[in-house]
Design a protein around this nucleic acid. Structure first.
Length: 437
DNA sequence: AAACTCCGCAACCGCAGACGC
DNA sequence: GGCGTCTGCGGTTGCGGAGTT
């Protein structure tokens, strides 16, 4: 545990935090077991909330925020420890597709898990996938993510009469997010619409690493960066800020339902490959065991089973409906001492009301066929080192690239290219890409 | 064995919303 | 309505450990 590690943080945390002369120096850094005990005792007596009073009542040299965080992330009853189960991982991915970086809301759907845990998990996962050149979401969730983003965008549009910078920012965010999703479906169209500012703009946008760059740079920076040519908002984003022509924006092209029903096992394998980004080194060097091997064995191998995504989504309304923070069924009984409890919808209820109702109606408006032929010059894919069309969906379905690379296309029908696995480490296309880290 | 690199996670920080006065 | 306080959220930082060279 952290406590046994001694001071992890530097002494910069030992300075007077609030500057008040009368206030004792508030400690920062890792919590000790003694401090934990004090905090637990306090909460048992007084309940959660009023965290600033902890220091006054107990003399614990910690600020209220630190107490709250410590309690919420480590001391709270019913916290799950350990790695995420496969179900939890899947739910996180799905929730992120719907909610974006709403860690607290996601945590409310995952009993015993904290927003911090989920955030850390997602960030590391995103790094892994980015390193491996994989999209953030499996195909089916890409659709959901795109639909959700689009819906948010449309809501925003309908609620404002003047398109302004905030709208464009939202478009940018949408664009950046779907860099990792929509572009999966039609990134080859960049061949027809390269970003001129790059020596090879099409490659820039097609490469997941660069998508990630844009994802982060656009979000972090205040200025406008060029939008991806694959963005449905590309044109307007490049051209104008101050009109209301958003209604004419093209909808992102989504894959056919057949493509969306591709095996989840294939995705999980890709996920596993992604997660084992280091594995390429380790496998080649010593064949050594990853330190995560055990936990992966329990998740990704099972992932080969074709999980029904919808069942996961549907089950989120079950026991997960209890917000993690409210679940004190193990003997601790707390009264919320804070009389100013926020009046919010229950997370699940709120999410459902904001997502699910509209999601299907939105999806019903999407194209269900991907206009592959028009966008794909026959030979251009080879130039990119990207294979598309039927063999790809077959590969994904089979979930074994090594085998598949030796196997001719035995003929499945799919109208959409599915380059998810093609973005894995095995794709020679990305082997020469510079690491962004 | 030592140095180095990478990764995961705990904790901090700034900001914003809600609420009371 | 303005101000102050409390709380929660999301982003970021940096340490320790594991793995690699």
């Amino acid at each position: 545990m952290v406590e046994s590690n001694g001071e992890r943080r530097r002494s910069h945390g030992d300075h007077q935090e609030d500057g008040g002369a009368a206030e004792p120096a508030l400690k920062k850094g890792p919590w000790t077991t003694a401090e934990d005990g004090i905090l637990i005792e306090y909460v048992q007596k007084h309940g959660e909330g009023n965290w600033n009073a902890v220091q006054k009542h107990t003399g614990l040299p910690r600020c209220g925020k630190s107490c709250r965080l410590r309690w919420a992330n480590h001391l709270r009853p019913n916290l799950k420890k350990g790695s995420f189960s496969q179900e939890e991982e899947r739910l996180i991915i799905e929730l992120h597709a719907k909610l974006g970086n709403k860690w607290a809301r996601m945590a409310a759907q995952l009993p015993g898990r904290t927003d911090n845990e989920i955030k850390n998990y997602w960030n590391t996962r995103m790094k892994r996938r980015q390193r491996a050149g994989l999209p953030l979401y499996p195909l089916d969730l890409q659709q959901e993510a795109t639909a959700f983003q689009l819906r948010q965008h449309q809501n925003h549009r309908s609620s404002t009469t003047t398109t302004n910078v905030s709208v464009l920012r939202q478009k940018l965010e949408f664009d950046n997010n779907i860099q990792n999703s929509v572009s999966v479906f039609n990134f080859s169209s960049t061949m027809n619409n390269p970003q001129k500012n790059f020596s090879d703009g099409s490659l820039f946008y097609a490469a997941p690493t660069n998508q990630f760059k844009f994802f982060t740079e656009n979000n972090g920076g205040g200025g406008f960066l060029p939008l991806s040519p694959v963005s449905p908002f590309h044109q307007i984003g490049q051209q104008q800020v101050n009109n209301n022509s958003l209604s004419s924006l093209p909808l992102p092209v989504l894959p056919s339902q057949a493509a969306l029903q591709l095996s989840y096992g294939g995705y999980m394998e890709a996920e596993a490959r992604s997660r084992n980004g280091k594995q390429t080194k380790e496998e080649s060097s010593s064949g050594g065991q990853l330190k995560r091997t055990a936990e992966q064995g329990s998740t990704e191998e099972q992932g080969a089973n074709n999980l029904n995504v919808r069942s996961v989504e549907g089950s989120s309304g079950g026991d997960a409906a209890v917000p993690a923070g409210e679940n004190h069924s193990d003997g601790f009984s707390f009264t919320h001492s804070s009389s100013r409890k926020r009046q919010r919808m229950e997370p699940l209820e709120e999410m459902d009301s904001m997502v699910d109702d509209d999601l299907m109606s939105l999806l019903s408006n999407f194209q269900t066929e991907m206009p592959v032929p028009e966008l794909y010059p026959n030979n251009s894919n080879d130039d990119l080192g990207i294979n598309t069309h039927d063999d790809l969906s077959l590969r994904e379905t089979n979930g074994n690239r090594d085998e598949d690379e030796q196997r001719p296309n035995v003929g499945t029908t799919s109208t959409v290219a599915s380059p998810v696995l093609e973005w894995s480490l095995g794709s020679s296309c990305w082997n020469n890409m510079p690491s962004i880290c």
